[in-house]
Nucleic acid binder design. Structure first.
Lengths: 223, 223
DNA sequence: ATTTTTAATTACTCATGGTAGATTCGGTGG
DNA sequence: CCACCGAATCTACCATGAGTAATTAAAAAT
C-alpha cells in the first residue's frame, strides 16, 4: 500500500529482510496476559535453569520483550510474581499435609518434609525465586519468599502463642527464623544429593521443635 | 606487611596525551597484592553500597580491571574471598563474647546478639556477601557464608551432642538451620529499623533454644 | 477511502563482567 | 653502549542482558 516508499525513512542503515515484516502482525495481545507470561517463564526456568534471560522468557512465551515488560513489569516484578505463585502452590500442598497431622510436632514435621519435597520438585524455580537480585532492592528481594511464607506462619504462631502471653513481635521473628532455617537446610540438601530426605526432615524438625535444649522432654530422638 | 600507602592513589585518566603511554607504567605489581585489593573492595562497598562494579573496585584500589582479576579472580572469587574475611572477623568477635558466657543458653544469646551487631555494623558488606550471585554457581554462592559459619558451629554442636549419641549428620543440618535462621532474622531486622536489637535477640534465642515447644521449662521469657 | 489511533516489532542505549591485543619497562646478551 | 626480549600492564574491545525508544503495520474512526 502506501508503505512501499522508504525514501523518507529515517534509518537508512537498518535494512531488514524483505520477508520479515516489522511492526504489528497478528496475535493482538490476546494471549499475552499476565498468567500466560508467568506460566511460560516457569516452564522455561524449569527446563533451562536459573540463568534464563528476560528475552528468552519472552521468546518462550511467544512474545517480545516489550510485551513481557508490559505484562509483568521489570525483572524484579517478575521474580516477585513467580515467588508469590510458588509460595502459594507450596502453601496449598503443604497445608494439606499438615492438616492431617496428629500433633503439633507432627504438623511441624510434615511442614518441613513438604517444604523439602516441593523445593526439590521445583528445584530450578525455587532457586530462581530465592536467589534474589543483586543491587538496590536486594534486601527486599531476599526477603521476598520469606515475607510471603512468614505471613502464614506468623498468623499460626501468633495464635499458637497468644495463649501464652507472648508479645506479638515474637511471631514475626520466629517466622523469619523458621523460614531461614528451612531455606538454608533446603539449599544444603539440594546441593548434597546424598542426604536422605527423611533423616534431614527429622533433624530439622528436632532443631526447630526442641531447639538446642540440653534436656528435651523425651530425650534426643535423632538416631 | 601491609605497608599500605594509599595516599599516592592514582586515578587513570580518560584521555592520554599524544605520546603518552598506554601499557606499562610504574608500579610493578607491588601494591596490587590480594590483601590490598580485598581491603579496597571492602572499603568501597562499605561506603558506596552493594551495587559497586568490579571496575569501581579496581579504581578504588588504584589498579585496573585486569590487575584485579589477576589478584583475586572473577566476581565469584571476589565475593567468596570477602565472605571468608567477613566470616572470620565475625567469628573472632563473636567467639570472644561467647567465651564469657555463663551457660549454654547464655552462649547462644551472645552468639545471636553478636551476629546481629556485627551484621549491622558491616551492613553493606554483609549484604554484598550474602546476596550471592545469580547464575550457575548460585547454589554454591548462597551457601558460601553459611558453609563458612556452619563449619564452626558444626564442630561445637557435634561435640555438644556427641554425649547424647546423635549421629554426626545432625550437626550439619543444625548448623545450616541455625545460620539460616540467623541470616533471615538479620535481614528482616536490617530492614525494620524499628525493632529493638535486644528484643529480637531474645526472641531468636528463644526460638533456637526452646523451639516451638508448647511448654518451655520456665514459660515464655519474652516479656 | 483516507486519516487517526493503537499496538507490536525492531533496534537501540547503557552498564557490566570478562578478555585480548597493544604498549612500555627492565633486564640481558651482543 | 645499544638493541632486543620477556614480563607486566593498560587500553580497548567483546558479549550479554536489562530496559526503552523509535519505527512500522494493522485496526478503528471519520
Amino acid at each position: 500500500m502506501k508503505a512501499g516508499n522508504p525514501s523518507s525513512k529515517r534509518k537508512p542503515q537498518a535494512v531488514r529482510p524483505p520477508g520479515r515484516p516489522a511492526g504489528r502482525t497478528l496475535r493482538d495481545g490476546v494471549l499475552a496476559d499476565r498468567e500466560t507470561l508467568l506460566t511460560a517463564a516457569e516452564r522455561l526456568i524449569r527446563e533451562a535453569g536459573t540463568g534464563v534471560s528476560l528475552e528468552a522468557i519472552a521468546t518462550e512465551a511467544g512474545v517480545t520483550k516489550p510485551i513481557l515488560y508490559r505484562g509483568v513489569g521489570d525483572r524484579h516484578a517478575l521474580v516477585y510474581a513467580l515467588a508469590e505463585r510458588l509460595a502459594q502452590r507450596m502453601a496449598v500442598e503443604v497445608e494439606r499435609d499438615v492438616a492431617a497431622a496428629s500433633s503439633t510436632e507432627d504438623a511441624l514435621r510434615r511442614l518441613v518434609a513438604g517444604y523439602l519435597q516441593h523445593a526439590r520438585a521445583e528445584r530450578n524455580l525455587y532457586l530462581y525465586v530465592t536467589a534474589g537480585v543483586t543491587g538496590d532492592g536486594q534486601l527486599e528481594q531476599s526477603l521476598l519468599l520469606a515475607d510471603r511464607t512468614a505471613q502464614q506462619f506468623a498468623a499460626g504462631i501468633a495464635a499458637f502463642r497468644s495463649t501464652h502471653g507472648a508479645d506479638p513481635e515474637v511471631a514475626t521473628v520466629w517466622s523469619f527464623g523458621l523460614v531461614g532455617a528451612l531455606h538454608y537446610v533446603t539449599l544444603w540438601w539440594l546441593r548434597e544429593e546424598t542426604a536422605d530426605q527423611a533423616v534431614v526432615t527429622e533433624h530439622l524438625t528436632d532443631l526447630l521443635w526442641s531447639g538446642m535444649k540440653l534436656e528435651p522432654a523425651g530425650g534426643p530422638k535423632a538416631d
